[in-house]
């Protein structure tokens, strides 16, 4: 039995391969087989290869690109698609466990399908260490499948430390109180060489740009230290913090969810505490 996998060079692809091997002997379609990126052409290639190989299932990494191509494959083939799975067991039906709410909730589900389409949530499954699967032969894409393709790339303005890559993040929530209130957050971030982050309440209020937002619908971060100032810790925010090594929560409410999910806490008024930390760092220099 053959299983088809959409692969690129990412760790997430090799994690998807781990689950795919339970469904057969893997063959791959490379994400970069069609350049520039044209998701309909990749979906068409997967559909054709799956038919030719009589594939038992099709897998991809649950990345933006992976989920996008799989969704198009699902639409094109009229098959159900289970996105962001953390486990999958062959059978009729196939049993899967998948992430909901950006990982704040798990769903056990049955996938009733002659050819399960499954994406694997990144960093939830160990990486496959076996040999790289052999690529399938692909025909040139049809014109109609190239209507949607990347025609250009624009780079972001160069400003400060990237949130997704930052080793330290100083983040503010509703408790910061105002746009101007972020001056003390920026000051501390400057001393630490840190990126500034914020919660959804802050971007909705227009205090910070959305590019600073950490959470389910913002950026997912993985710093060594995350300093959360005046953030209550709704699931929306916590969904972005799963990769943080250490969390320091500063909040006047000791029962705030973030205070209960942190590694370190300081209770009190962030408007006194944050400047005191900055002053202490300056004193020691």
């Amino acid at each position: 039995m053959t299983v088809l996998v959409l692969m690129d060079e990412s760790d997430a692809s090799r994690q998807a391969l781990t689950l795919a091997r339970k469904f057969g002997d893997p063959r791959s379609v490379r994400m970069d087989a069609i350049e520039p990126f044209a998701p309909d052409a990749l979906a068409a290639a997967l559909a054709q290869a799956a038919d030719e190989l009589n594939a038992s299932a099709v897998f991809a990494a649950g990345t933006d690109r992976g989920n996008e191509v799989m969704a198009r494959l699902a639409a094109r083939t009229g098959l159900p698609f289970a996105a962001n799975c953390i486990s999958a067991t062959p059978g009729e039906p196939v049993s899967v466990t998948r992430l909901r709410w950006g990982g704040s909730l798990l769903e056990e589900a049955r996938l009733h399908s002659p050819r399960p389409l499954i994406s694997v949530a990144p960093h939830t499954v160990p990486e496959d260490t076996g040999p790289r699967p052999q690529d399938v032969d692909m025909k040139p894409p049809a014109e109609a499948d190239l209507v949607v393709r990347v025609v250009d790339h624009v780079s972001p303005r160069n400003g400060g430390v990237s949130l997704a890559e930052a080793k330290v993040i100083v983040s503010g929530g509703r408790g910061v109180g105002s746009k101007e209130g972020f001056a003390i957050i920026e000051d501390l971030a400057g001393l630490l060489g840190a990126a500034v982050g914020c919660s959804r309440a802050v971007t909705s209020a227009g205090w910070r740009p959305h590019s600073d937002q950490v959470g389910q619908t913002g950026t997912k971060v993985a710093p060594d230290v995350y300093i959360a100032c005046g953030i209550s810790g709704a699931t929306q925010h916590m969904a972005g913090l799963k990769g943080a090594k250490r969390i320091l929560a500063i909040n006047s409410d000791p029962q705030a969810p973030l205070m209960l999910n942190a590694d370190y806490t300081v209770t009190g008024d962030l408007k006194e505490i944050v400047p005191a930390i900055s002053a202490e760092i300056r004193k020691r220099r």
Binding site: D263, A276, E280
Partner: peptide
Amino acid sequence: AESLGAGAAAA
């Protein structure tokens, strides 16, 4: 969570 204290004194 390990408490590092309360207020500015925790700095």
